[in-house]
Amino acid sequence: MSDEDEEELILSELSDEELVPQMHDDLYDGLKEEVEEGVYILLERGWEPYAVLTNALVEGMRIVGIDFRDGILFVPEVLLAANAMKTGMAILKPLLAETGAPRMGKMVIGTVKGDIHDIGKNLVSMMMEGAGFEVVDLGINNPVENYLEAIENEKPDILGMSALLTTTMPYMKVVIDRLVELGLRDDFVVLVGGAPLNEDFSKAIGADAYCRDAAVAVETAKEFMARKHNVLSAG
């Protein structure tokens, strides 16, 4: 299609069946205002906030995640998509709190001490929120004390740690060792990620899983939560 004969797309004139996939496309293209508008339209049409979240935003980000994983999208595009998602989330958040919508689980996440890199961590944070998790983001450069404090206060289901540098990745082991010492290690799932990491490394330092990218992090987190629920219902 050429730009010239492109018609203006009026979101409010689309049926629900057309609007939702359109919102997926708009999320994919990182179109913040369009996503925001779509969320308002669906709410006005009487959609439950939780349905808007799952059918429009979470599903849209799932598609973004697949193309990110497959090397079709890269960090800039995914960040723009996640920012668009966040705009939609900001509208839904207070409504979700009111309606007592189900939560996937809670994650505390942070980049380890000495490491300023938070691009990947922010992506995980946003994609996890996009998947319906509650995320407490500790930011960058976190000594073990920060993690311990957040664990105490937040009682997360998942602890996420990120490191981009060879010089900072060993610090993940420092944190995990401390958790073991304090007898806290088995209270939650520990997921680690970052460019220099790999599966063997995560196993060796005592994490539960290595997540290659934000899409994998979301899938892994969901799996662990499902297992936890199974264990709980079996017990």
Binding site: M1, L9, I10, D29, I72
Partner: peptide, 10 residues
Amino acid sequence: DRNRRQRRRR
């Protein structure tokens, strides 16, 4: 060659 998605139009 990427099968990039595009914003659909009416």
